[in-house]
Design a binder for these strands. Structure first.
Lengths: 353, 353
DNA sequence: ATCAATATTGAATGCGCATTCACAATGAGT
DNA sequence: ACTCATTGTGAATGCGCATTCAATATTGAT
């Protein structure tokens, strides 16, 4: 149900104020106006002030679009001031936090963010292509990769690309991510220390590189320490999928005594289903570990043990590297790995042998 | 801790492929190339195909920036294809969901989203100003308002503005929001029906219009039904602030028997602090109502009763109205109000008289 | 006072494109 | 065959700006 309230209004679209208008009013040439708005250009203090005053009076603001058009001449390395950002699963706390930090980071360096959301990996190339038409100065892709073709295309055009939460995998692009395998190993090690015997893993989306790496590290370490994975379920990174995985895991005859989920959101799904739908006790009935350390993991009623990703630092690093690249296109790509840290909370409990 | 892996790479930035390059290769004029890429322009099928083939071979893509520069001539009503979006508290599930939907909506209409995040209302005007330099075709502001000065500035330039989650308040801009007062009234009515006597309210940020409206409706209805507000706490829309409000509310001698929070996130903070830090039982010790119906409100362990905002529909409406305005600047502003719906879950319980 | 060195300035140019306009090519009608 | 419409096409233009370059104003030094 909704109701409408109509306001009156006239949307007349006039020609916008240009540097020529300002020039005329200030009694100078258009060049002078341009210089007045370009820090570092030679211009007499007096002239600049006159121009700024006239601009003020007319409500003039340089047209960033025209500016970048013009810049394309002297500097073949375009400078639109925009960075293209491609993201999936924006509702996921991990990504919304990342985007929030990213936005602040780019803004602090004076860059604008052209945001594109995609549903799946298959849409990435199209998004990249669209963003390229807008002559972005750089690209930042979260949790997705680009095809070799697009990587080549970006390289040819001198557009630096930064992958967040993914590996460059031989493509000539930069990347920033967590040590996923190592994170999995940490989880395995810790669960075995606690004395667990029947350990389950809940994967993110099938084929997802991040989830796969976490699983590999997890299994590897289990095996190294003389154990094996007891059960494996697959979700799609949503709460609901974690919940369902939990229902499946704990409706078996022989239940796992520990679960490692590829993300906190799924771990919380598992937690809620076990505790509130199946009447189980966490951590008494089983220990639970997540990945990411989203805010909800730390809520008192959850107290989820997890592998923390230092999002803020990772994003800062990604932004800094990307900005460096945009300023100096001849710099080689750089890949940075961060280490995850095990955050101990009450969702895990030592078994008495 | 982090380690670097350096890839080799050469970031040569060549001049990009232009319509002239394509024209030469296809043996036609630049005009023909332009027409080939502009649906509806007169061009022979044969010529178009030759152009597209040449473009393909050269990896040509029209430059959206130049395109909008050029368009500015015949059409004084700019057409950059970009919409400026300003948002606060992007980490909040309500907003991250909104932005996700918004992004899809705009993309589906062929528009790009230039995203700007602000920390507070005071940064909005600056953000607007920056976005205007990029000649966005429209603006969408979430949970913030613009000054009269900027509203006037947008009007003069023919840039339609849409406020989401805020009232237009006499400014000549459109808006889409929930009936906040009505939502507060629903909550009050329901809590009284359940027989509650000591009812508390937890506000969002001080002075926040949304929170204020919810509180007004809530108080009004309580009074109409012969009651008054028992306690009032103030938060800032974060989980932590809801948690602290809960701690304050329930460490008193005389505790409230019902709490209405201005947002789900704060309500969950209150829930967790009461249940897991103070050992209280929800709903036996008190009933709890939130606002928004974020996904976590429906998690089994939370089962939070709340006033649902139909985000998806609201965003769709906002996008549609904004797009209409961008296509037809002479249309009057429009304000749309949606009704919230009380979603019953187990966080509320009838008192036995 | 004079000249070289420096600081400012404006006219002209082009970034890449869509559009206008005048003309060429084709087709229809008598 | 000859007109009159109907496409289709390319040369020229300008969107708003930053920059180049040559010209002019200012300064300092002698």
């Amino acid at each position: 149900m909704k109701c409408n309230i109509i306001h009156k209004g006239t949307g007349m679209a006039k020609r916008s104020v240009t540097s020529y208008d300002v020039a005329k009013r200030a009694g100078v040439s258009q060049s002078a106006v341009s210089r007045a708005f370009s820090p570092g250009r030679p211009i007499a203090r007096n002239t600049r002030e006159r121009v700024l005053k006239a601009a003020q009076e007319l409500g003039y603001q340089p047209n960033a679009i025209a500016r970048s058009m013009s810049a394309a001449r002297s500097d073949p390395h375009q400078k639109s001031g925009m960075v293209g950002v491609i993201v999936t699963r924006l509702q996921d706390p991990f990504f919304s936090q990342s985007i929030a930090d990213l936005s602040h980071g780019l803004q602090s360096f004076g860059w604008q963010m052209l945001l594109f959301t995609v549903e799946s990996q298959s849409e990435v190339d199209g998004a990249l292509s669209t963003l390229m038409q807008y002559k972005v100065d750089g690209m930042l892709i979260l949790s997705a990769i680009l095809s070799d073709k697009m990587a080549e295309s970006c390289r040819k055009r001198g557009i630096p690309v930064m992958l967040f939460n993914r590996s460059a995998d031989g493509r000539d692009v930069s990347s920033v991510q967590i040590e996923n395998q190592e994170g999995g190993r940490l989880a395995a090690e810790f669960l075995l220390e606690l004395g667990h015997q029947r350990i389950a893993f809940v994967a993110g989306e099938a084929g997802d590189a991040t989830s796969t790496a976490r699983e590999e590290g997890f299994r590897e370490r289990l095996v190294e320490l003389g154990h094996t994975l007891f059960l494996r379920e697959e979700g799609n990174y949503t709460f609901e999928s974690g919940r369902e995985a939990g229902l499946r895991l704990f409706s078996r005859n022989e239940r796992p005594d520990a679960v490692f989920c590829a993300s906190d959101v799924m771990a919380l799904g598992t937690l809620h289903s076990a505790r509130y739908e199946m009447g189980l006790d966490v951590p008494k009935d089983f220990s639970l570990i997540g990945f990411d350390d989203i805010p909800a993991a730390g809520w008192p009623g959850h107290a989820l043990t997890t592998i923390r990703q230092p999002i803020r630092r990772m994003i800062r690093e990604a932004v800094e590297v990307l900005v460096e690249h945009m300023k100096n296109p001849d710099m080689p790509a750089r890949s940075v790995l961060f280490s995850g840290k095990l955050i101990l909370r009450q969702s895990c409990l030592k078994r008495i042998a």
